[in-house]
Design a binder for these strands. Structure first.
Lengths: 114, 114
DNA sequence: CATCTATATTGCTAAATAGAGATATATCAA
DNA sequence: TTGATATATCTCTATTTAGCAATATAGATG
């Protein structure tokens, strides 16, 4: 099994490209053929196929078979891991520092809240 | 102002490297000097400095000044954006397939385009 | 079979990246 | 001032990446 950290490298690396994020956004509306994914971009078909390979390597899409089509569908599971990783930093952004300090003091004073 | 999409390229690109993720994890415990960040790795100081530049370019860390030290501290705000982006896909992983299908059917019943 | 369509693969180039060692700069301390 | 420490910058190399055009393959259809 691939180390979790390597998997994160692949997932975040895949998300680092705007074309690939746009492909995922498109796939959120349902599966698509490669040509359907090529259409909105001014990029060649081989280039999109390469992006799809990166997404597939990260586990973010999977491919089917339907005659000469290889429909692409979203597989969001790896995003759950990525979300969890980022979530560990939530306390650093969703409260101002003062509020965070107050919150921590409140925790210490009262015990476990929601 | 930098386009939001470019900012995401930088943030996800920064997170795609395990050394940089480890640096952020370390900074969650408080600010650190460059040498303190070098110590846990078998990487040279210039290499860590380069990673810090990438993190700074993504807005994920900021630098202070204290004598000859340039303390590095976490700036998690850009992670909020990244989290929001990923969050748009939450419904694809935090519900069972049956529930997802029900959700899609519900959308279709309400006339939401696919 | 011949051909058309969908997609993958190959081979290339240019640019970006991670890493190193050497050296420069800035500040402190004696 | 001299030297020590912290960090940045320069220059180089190897690897990876995004992109393209050309070509190969797989399946449908005339």
């Amino acid at each position: 099994m691939r180390a979790a950290s390597q998997q994160m490298d692949l997932v975040f690396g895949a998300l680092a490209d705007p074309t690939r994020r746009a492909i995922l956004a498109r796939l959120a509306d349902g599966e698509a053929t490669v040509n359907e994914l090529v259409a909105p971009f001014e990029l060649s078909q081989p280039t999109i196929s390469k992006h799809l390979k990166v997404l597939e390597g990260a586990g973010l899409v999977s491919r089917g078979r339907n005659a000469q089509f290889r429909p692409v569908r979203l597989n969001a599971k790896p995003l759950a891991e990525a979300s969890r990783w980022i979530g560990d930093y939530r306390r650093f952004w969703d409260e101002s520092l003062d509020q965070l300090e107050a919150y921590v003091k409140d925790l210490q004073a009262k015990g476990e809240p929601s």
